[in-house]
Design a protein around this nucleic acid. Structure first.
Lengths: 245, 245
DNA sequence: TTAATAGTGTCTGTCAGACACTATCAA
DNA sequence: TTGATAGTGTCTGACAGACACTATTAA
């Protein structure tokens, strides 16, 4: 570092990454599903300090020898816990400050995932002694969450809710085949309000993101057409759902 | 760490934050302004390796002894370079991977700022030998930027542009007093398309975010009413600007 | 007067909500 | 048949774009 002139290669050769104090760096993922008529989030019970035996979001340290990027860390943890390999995964942002972790200055990179509730196979991974879906009610879960995870969860719920007003995001929460009414119900659960069914059908069908399977769902009453998603892409509407006037 | 039972306090007392490899952690800010009929971004020329003498975004390492949170890092760097203390500042997200920095695995927490072009006093800070506004054209600046800053810049421009379709964000780029036509021009510069003036006036005036100062701007032609922002809050419209049909 | 720019009046188009109506199944 | 649920017809209202019109200044 003290040489008068130095090439970039010489600089990197001499570079000591430990001379500056660096924050701890983590990745946390808010894994959403809709189950039993509720928006739910995957939580794990911590087996280690800090916040030993408290429930928390799914997350942990980046393994810089194994993960190529932070999204890979999120996917690795998510697959480890749920077996789901290709969820809808979007970055929420990052939070970093001196107080969020008693071990010291830390930054967490936050993702949220949407996964259909079918065929999820929960596994208690390392660092955990329990895992469960937690019902979200009033933007919170009933257990007190470790660290600042309650704030992070609330931020992700708000982001999700506001995007649901102008996107087809809830399609990522559906099973392979579903009826329009089932999709509407998922919208209603996330938005926490009833929607007008005619407007909803018109809106969804107009943008050509679903395909009729030709099959019908036979529950009570008139059978309903089963649809499947035409694409993994999310549709962005140019007008919001406005809710009841 | 090897004790059978340990309280959280004992755990924290024994905790050694250096036993795991941790990525470098930075904060970068895309500082936007509108100047000379162009969207521009603040760039600095690096005085040190890596990417010595290359232009880059404003940013650097977190000072965990000085910064209480990552936003404070962003604000500190921004004030150091521009003298602006209370800009519009929003987190874009974070990017972290093994390859973005030749010094090794690194994560950068990205913010974008909107500042009015008046009274900005650029200062070459530490780590830099030059500073300038760079014109954005085709989502890029003409200089090649260090690290993955060109990608980060592009992501922030896309985020900005999409939010401008349904928010009053451009108000944060205006001087204290401005005409509706001047505001419209800023919208047009960011969106890179002409807007219909009647629709624009109707949209902005309907939501009551501006206040008439009573003063008039006297340029060529009929004088125009001068407005100022009623609030620092950003308004979210329920319908997008749809552009020319 | 004219050129330039600010600002209005008003028509159409799109798509949201509201809500009554019809359709199709099981029991 | 009736009850339940799926799906349609169609009105209204909000607000976007289009574009012609009027208003106010300087030269």
């Amino acid at each position: 570092m003290s040489k008068i002139m130095q090439t970039e290669d010489e600089f990197l050769c001499d570079y000591d990454p430990t001379i500056f104090d660096r924050p701890n760096t983590l990745v946390d993922t808010v894994i959403f599903t809709v189950l039993d008529s509720h928006l739910q989030v995957l939580t794990v019970k911590r087996s280690n300090h800090p916040y030993k035996y408290n429930w928390s979001l799914v997350g942990g340290f980046i393994d810089i020898n194994k993960d190529l990027d932070i999204e890979a860390t999120a996917k690795r943890k998510l697959e480890e816990k749920t077996g789901v390999k290709t969820p809808y995964l979007e970055q929420y942002g990052s939070v970093g400050n001196a107080n969020r972790d008693p071990r010291g200055w830390s930054v967490t990179n936050i993702y949220f995932a949407l996964i259909p509730n079918h065929k999820v196979d929960l596994k208690i991974g390392e660092g955990a002694i329990d895992i469960k879906w937690s019902v979200i009610s009033d933007d919170k879960v009933s257990d007190k969450l470790a660290f600042d995870h309650a704030d992070i969860l609330q931020g992700c719920i708000e982001r999700l809710r506001s995007k649901v007003l102008y996107t087809s995001l809830p399609v990522h929460l559906m099973p392979k085949e579903f009826t329009l009414k089932e999709l509407q119900t998922v919208y209603e659960i996330i938005l926490d309000q009833k929607l007008e069914h005619k407007s909803f059908r018109r809106r969804i069908l107009a943008v050509n993101i679903l395909e009729e399977t030709g099959k019908m769902s036979h529950e009570r009453g008139r059978p309903a057409a089963l649809y499947c998603a035409k694409t993994k892409n999310t549709h962005f509407f140019i007008r919001n759902i406005e809710g009841n006037r």
